[in-house]
């Protein structure tokens, strides 16, 4: 059972749950004020959106919500956690992933289909992905700043760096590889009718745990 964590202002929780279903799994929602993840949780998704309206900084308030204590314990025990877009911002703000996400160098929201190079296919979550995948990116604050030399980089933008991130980084993992965050939206790349199914292996890996 995959727990999709909802905060006020989360937007992509339904799409994340649909992607889990498309990967053959089942999903349930956990809420910001819950002290524990639902019983039987085998993986966690922090979905995209504008939690708490991006007030203070994107992800800052959500990272201190009660449910994040449970997510931290789950991750420290080796559980698989996937943060997408705002979920990635929350994981960085919570210190579960390295680096910070700044406003895009375009100073604007960017919504575009992009190609990603899978820089590290050896994590628990990225194992089944093709070397290059097509997924949409859509955010205002996706410009990752960090030290690529000491960070386990898992995704880089292919052929362009649309948000201006350090070393064209699109997604990173923790050292152990069980926590992965990325700005683009693999949950919107699981349906051929919408243009790409390249994101599906990520959810299969999450469901398989």
């Amino acid at each position: 059972m995959i727990a999709v964590v909802r905060f006020p202002g989360s937007l992509d929780h339904d799409s994340a749950a649909k992607a889990v279903h498309a990967a053959g799994g089942t999903a349930t929602f956990a809420w910001q004020d819950d002290a524990e993840l639902p019983a039987g949780t085998t993986g966690v998704i922090l979905p995209g959106g504008f939690s708490y309206g991006d007030h203070l900084r994107p992800g800052a308030i959500a990272s201190r919500a009660p449910i994040m204590g449970a997510v931290r314990r789950f991750a420290e025990a080796g559980g698989r956690v996937l943060g997408i877009c705002n979920g990635f911002q929350v994981l960085c703000e919570a210190g579960l992933l390295p680096g910070v996400l700044r406003t895009n160098t375009t100073l604007s929201f960017v919504c575009r289909q992009v190609h990603l190079d899978v820089a590290d296919g050896d994590t628990a979550l990225t194992r089944g992905l093709a070397p290059t995948i097509s997924v949409p990116v859509k955010n205002q604050d996706g410009n990752w700043l960090g030290d690529p030399a000491t960070t386990r980089v898992v995704f880089r933008y292919h052929g362009e760096n649309p948000l201006g991130s350090t070393d064209a980084v699109a997604g990173v993992a923790n050292a152990r590889g069980n926590v992965v965050g990325l700005m683009p939206h693999p949950e919107e790349a699981v349906d051929a009718l919408l243009g790409s199914t390249d994101g599906l292996p990520l959810f299969r890996a999450l469901v398989a745990a």
Partner: peptide
């Protein structure tokens, strides 16, 4: 204009902006 708008949220946008009409499942 349309790259500043999230035209995909909800995962139902079949025909995206830039054509004649948008198609949403």
């Amino acid at each position: 204009v349309y790259e500043q708008y999230d035209h995909l949220v909800g995962a139902n946008t079949i025909v995206r902006p830039g054509g004649d009409a948008a198609v949403v499942r």
